[in-house]
């Protein structure tokens, strides 16, 4: 009798463990999600994952801002109206930030995609690491007390590059 067929999870060795570094540089609601979704997926595959928040992406970890990220259709010609394939005329787009944000949040909630702060909670619970950019903190006159408590440190770009040696890297 042959051995049973068992899935190979390839997780029994720490040699050459995969590491993923995600640089989150955007603070628009729609651009917060790619890093969160990919980071969460990587953690679920046993990949050591570090997220670095810089420039506009800093808002994702600033306590007073993280609940209120906005989505603007301005400059985004791929924004379609509920009628399939109908585009929102760009001339109207700048006035649509409020309703567009509400609609995006509703669509995400329907799929049980968490809001940004909850999503970061889940990422940290799954073993992900959060880092804040020193320059962004200095420019915004923000300190550790302004950030989520689970941000592990405010570090320089060099620190992050050094820490993620050998990692696969995503810039968002």
């Amino acid at each position: 009798m042959s051995e049973p067929l068992i899935p190979q999870f390839d997780d029994d060795t720490d040699d050459g463990e995969r590491m993923l570094a995600i640089i989150c540089s955007k603070g628009n609601l729609d651009m917060a999600y790619p890093g969160l979704i990919l980071g969460n997926a990587a953690l679920g595959e046993g990949v050591n994952t570090h997220l670095f928040f810089t420039f506009w992406g800093f808002d994702m970890i600033v306590k007073s801002r993280m609940n209120n990220l906005q989505f603007s259709p301005a400059g985004n010609t791929a924004l379609h109206l509920p009628m399939k394939d109908m585009r929102l005329p760009q001339a109207f787009a700048p006035a649509m930030t409020g309703p567009a944000t509400s609609m995006l949040k509703k669509q995400l909630a329907e799929l049980d995609i968490p809001e940004v702060p909850d999503f970061l909670d889940q990422i940290v619970a799954a073993g992900g690491h959060l880092w804040a950019c020193r320059l962004s903190a200095d420019m915004g006159k923000l300190g550790e007390s302004d950030l989520r408590d689970d941000v592990e440190g405010i570090i320089s770009a060099s620190d992050f590059i050094e820490m993620t040696k050998g990692a696969q890297l995503l810039f968002i």
Partner: peptide, 17 residues
């Protein structure tokens, strides 16, 4: 069941395991 617990019970790749 909290995420953290899932990772403790089914290490590294909880969803698939």
């Amino acid at each position: 069941v909290p995420t953290k617990t899932q990772f403790q019970l089914f290490p590294k790749k909880p969803a698939k395991k």
